[in-house]
Every structure is written in structure tokens, then in C-alpha cells.
Computed example of a mutant assay.
Amino acid sequence: LTPANGNDDRLTVWIAAVKATDLPHLHTFTRGLGLDRDAVNAALTHPFHNGGTEGVNTKTKLIKRQMYGRAGFTLLRHRILLG
């Protein structure tokens, strides 16, 4: 889904269609979307995201898990900075 103006309106129409069906799992999903609708609308309409930051965090956690119990902070720091 490419972020664009009007996606939030399309989501509202989709949620209404889901509520008209007999699919309880999708009802639960749409209730979850409604709990933080402002954030969902922002994700659907704005082209900005923090995917790069999340990727760096995931990679850092992976290296940390691999290094657990093997060496000190200095080597961990070097692996993160050079990797």
C-alpha cells in the first residue's frame, strides 16, 4: 500500500464492509485499528516512516545476542560500528 491522500477514507469504507460480514477475526482486527486510528491514518497517508531506524535497532540486537558471553563491550561496540 503506497501512502496517499484518501487512503484513510478507503480504510473507513473497508472497515464498514467488514463489520457487515460474519468474520469475527476481522472484526477483532478492525477494533484494534480503531484503538489508534490517528496513527493508522498517518501511516496510510504520509510518506514518512522510521523503517531505517528500526532496521538498525534490529541489527544491533542481533549482534548483541550473538556476542552474549563472548567478549566485552569494546568488541561489541566495534562490531556494531563496523558492521
Rank of each mutant, 00 (worst) to 15 (best):
N41G: 08
V40D: 06
H46Y: 10
T53A: 01
N50A: 09
H46A: 14
L44H: 03
D36M: 05
D36L: 03
G69K: 01
T53N: 00
P47A: 11
F48S: 09
R65W: 04
R65D: 07
D38S: 14
G34A: 14
D36G: 06
D36R: 08
F48L: 13
G52T: 09
T45L: 12
T45Y: 09
T58L: 07
L35G: 13
G52M: 08
V40R: 04
T45V: 15
K59H: 02
L44K: 04
H49W: 03
G51N: 06
M67I: 08
T45K: 11
Q66E: 15
M67Q: 11
V40F: 05
K59Y: 01
V56I: 13
G32M: 01
G34S: 15
G52Q: 09
L33F: 03
P47C: 06
G34D: 13
A43K: 05
L44T: 02
K61H: 10
K64I: 05
L62T: 07
P47H: 09
I63T: 15
L62S: 05
G69S: 02
A43D: 07
L62A: 09
G34Y: 15
G32K: 02
G34P: 08
N41F: 06
V40T: 12
M67P: 07
V40A: 10
H46S: 15
H49L: 00
A39L: 13
N50C: 06
D36W: 03
A39R: 13
T58Q: 10
N57V: 04
V56G: 02
G69Y: 02
E54T: 08
T53D: 01
G52V: 05
R37Q: 13
T45F: 09
G52H: 10
L62P: 01
N50V: 08
N57C: 02
R37A: 12
Y68I: 07
K61V: 09
K61M: 11
G32N: 04
E54M: 09
L62C: 04
T53L: 00
Y68K: 10
G51H: 05
N41Y: 05
N41D: 14
K61Y: 06
N41L: 04
A39P: 00
T45S: 12
G51T: 08
I63V: 15
A43I: 04
A43T: 07
K61C: 07
L33I: 07
V40W: 04
E54S: 08
R65K: 12
L33S: 02
A39Q: 11
T53S: 01
M67H: 12
M67A: 14
P47K: 07
M67D: 04
Y68R: 13
G52P: 13
I63Q: 12
A42F: 08
K61N: 13
H46G: 06
G55L: 03
T60D: 00
A42D: 11
D38V: 12
N50R: 06
G34E: 15
F48Y: 15
K64W: 01
E54D: 14
G55I: 02
H49R: 09
V40I: 15
L44W: 01
H46C: 12
I63S: 12
N41I: 12
T45E: 15
L33D: 04
I63D: 10
Y68M: 10
E54P: 08
A42W: 03
D36Y: 04
G52W: 05
L33R: 01
